[in-house]
Computed example of a mutant assay.
Amino acid sequence: MREYMTSNPVVALTLTLLLLVLCPRAYRVVETWEHVTVRYGVWEDLPVLQSAAFQRGYRRLNDVCKTDYYHGFMFSRGDNTKAMPIYDLNGALAGVQSRFRLPIGQRGYNSQNETISLPPVEVMPPVLKAFSDGRGSQHYTVTAYFNHPSLICSPLVSPGVLPGRGLYIQMGFNPARHFLSVPLHDRDLSPLWVRGSCLPQMGTHYFSNLSRALPCEKLYPLFLMYNWEGQLAAFGWLFQGRPYSLRSNDGVEWFRLTTPTYPFLFDTSQLPPCMFQEGFQVFGIHVYLRRHETLVCPRENPQRYPPSDKAHGNIRHSAPASQQTHDINNNEKIDIRGNYDGVNISRDEQFNSVDIRDKANRKPSSSNDCPVARDSSLILLTSVILLFMSVVR
């Protein structure tokens, strides 16, 4: 069949045009996530356009796209800093930042059950210092982008940068260079990411380096959630301690977990003993990229999830790459994905300047959306060439 299609340009072109009508995703990049929602306390949909944000009572915080702390135009509403949407030059939703502060003098715990300052230096980045409010309170931020960070404030696409939706975690104060690219499918995660529980309307959780041997000061702030097909569906932030303010006036609040409520998020068999220290607690928030009602937990397929020793601590690295900056020689490569480009950390940039490049996990569209799309580009190209040859003859 394929031979007949490629030998007859009229048939090939007709079928290709039909494919474009029936399956337009085959030839376009999916620019945005279908549904961006923050969750706890209430479900809050983030406005997908800057104009809609103004209509819903948000105010813009900056007039210059590139700031010293993030890229894009950030909006907030009232006292809610838990999920502040970021828009690109075209006014489209391009990211979200969470900002928090801790009560003055609050202490946390390390693996020896000794008290430590919060947030621990081991989780910076992705936690970054923002500003001090002049009353002794330090504010901190974590920022995620839904498009490549170099595209947020630029109308031009840089060489080697693929457009389209994704998830990029800011790892320094120049997000165009300092970011972590999150795989869009769980099969592309490195062994660093440990599969946890699957919970209805939340999906299958993955935590970085989580095991019973993990020091509590290295509890990584980012966790990921994938749907039953293994597609990225949501992510969340997780911090040790308790926030200065739990709830915003609009009803959005941090989730807060202590030992009795750990099963809300964790498989407790994977947790280190220090997390069961009296007084230990965590807080955070979920950010959904797909509709939560589609995140179900069917019976696991043993071929999809083969037996693994991830939960027992047999992981390649003892901490996320961003936490190993001081131990890495200049130009050493670390494979954060397991089989793709690694992490290039320059010694002179040090702690808050981690250059993480990942080009392999960006896919214009899914073959599950259009099963026949995998051969369509070849067919279209062949059709054009044959038509041109027939005209020349």
Rank of each mutant, 00 (worst) to 15 (best):
P155I: 01
H178T: 06
L162D: 07
Y145L: 01
P159G: 01
C153S: 09
S150F: 03
N174S: 15
W193S: 09
A176P: 11
W193P: 11
L156N: 08
D188E: 11
N174T: 02
S150A: 15
G160T: 00
L167Q: 12
P155Q: 05
P191V: 02
Y168G: 10
F146M: 07
S158M: 02
R165A: 05
N174I: 03
I152K: 03
L151N: 08
C153D: 06
L156Q: 14
F179M: 09
L192W: 04
R177H: 09
H185Y: 07
P159W: 05
L184G: 13
R177T: 04
Y145T: 01
P191M: 03
I169A: 12
Y168N: 10
H148T: 06
C153A: 03
D186A: 11
N147P: 07
L184I: 07
L180Q: 15
L156E: 08
S158D: 09
L184W: 06
L189F: 15
S158V: 00
W193H: 05
D188F: 05
I152A: 08
L180A: 15
F179K: 13
L156M: 02
S150R: 14
G160H: 07
Y168V: 06
I169N: 12
L156C: 02
C153L: 04
S181T: 14
P149V: 03
F179T: 04
A176R: 10
P175W: 02
Q170W: 07
F146D: 10
G164E: 06
S181F: 14
L189I: 00
S154N: 14
L156P: 05
L167I: 04
N147L: 04
P155M: 11
P163G: 12
Y168A: 04
P191N: 14
W193R: 04
F173S: 10
C153P: 02
Q170F: 07
S190T: 09
P159C: 01
D188H: 13
P163E: 11
I152P: 11
R165V: 01
F179G: 09
H178Q: 15
